[in-house]
């Protein structure tokens, strides 16, 4: 499955930027997200490249010349050491978990295919990530890190949280986006306000 089709091709949530749906606080937050993509501070160059390759499979964006940036924001979280407020008893602290997890993916790729993850064909990358998701990994590359938990709880969650916080992602799923001070009036079945995405193409 390579093609991607949105039911809302004509919807652009940013058109609401100057309407009452967006207040200055929210504009500041989203402007930062769009314009101030952070530089690399925590990951090494190799880790960064590897994570770029992984993120491109977890959240593929072949339809975009300018993909939604993901890795810079993961690096930002790691640099600030801003965790979710808990870590699983079988996991090391967040920063170590990421380091070990990325090393695990790299090791797993070299072990199975003799190449760097980023050099593998997309289907092979997907198969490898699928194996990690199911926990079918070689413990030698992962240390004490539970690979499946790293994949589902850290890697996947973080990547999609970043992707679906981007206006481009709101557009493709027809999400109303920021809504303050103006919220919504029409709430029932098949009801939509003029400031929402229109009727979807099915």
């Amino acid at each position: 499955m390579n093609g991607f089709k949105t039911p809302y091709p004509d919807y652009d949530v940013l058109e609401k930027w100057d309407t009452p749906s967006w207040n200055p606080q929210t504009r500041a937050v989203v402007r930062r997200r769009l314009d101030q993509v952070p530089e690399r501070r925590f990951l090494t160059e190799q880790e960064w490249q590897l994570l770029e390759a992984v993120a491109a499979r977890v959240m593929p964006q072949p339809d975009r010349a300018d993909p939604v940036p993901i890795v810079p924001w993961i690096d930002d979280t790691l640099a600030a050491n801003r965790g979710p407020g808990y870590r699983y008893a079988d996991m090391p602290p967040m920063r170590e978990a990421w380091r070990q997890g990325l090393a695990g993916i790299a090791g797993e790729a070299r072990e199975r295919h003799g190449r760097n993850f980023g050099e593998l064909p997309a289907e092979v990358q997907d198969a490898l990530l699928g194996a990690i998701q199911r926990g079918e990994t070689d413990g030698r590359h992962w240390g004490d890190l539970p690979a499946a938990r790293f994949f589902s709880e850290l890697l996947l969650k973080q990547i999609v949280a970043i992707y679906y916080a981007h206006p481009a992602a709101w557009n493709e799923i027809g999400f109303g986006g920021p809504a303050s001070p103006r919220g919504y009036v029409r709430l029932g079945f098949d009801e939509r306000d003029p400031w929402e995405a229109g009727v979807p193409d099915v």
């Binding site: 207040n23 606080q25 929210t26 937050v29 949280a161 920021p178 809504a179 303050s180």
Partner: peptide
């Protein structure tokens, strides 16, 4: 203080 945003 509050933005209309899931991540912020």
């Amino acid at each position: 203080d509050f933005a209309s945003d899931e991540n912020a």
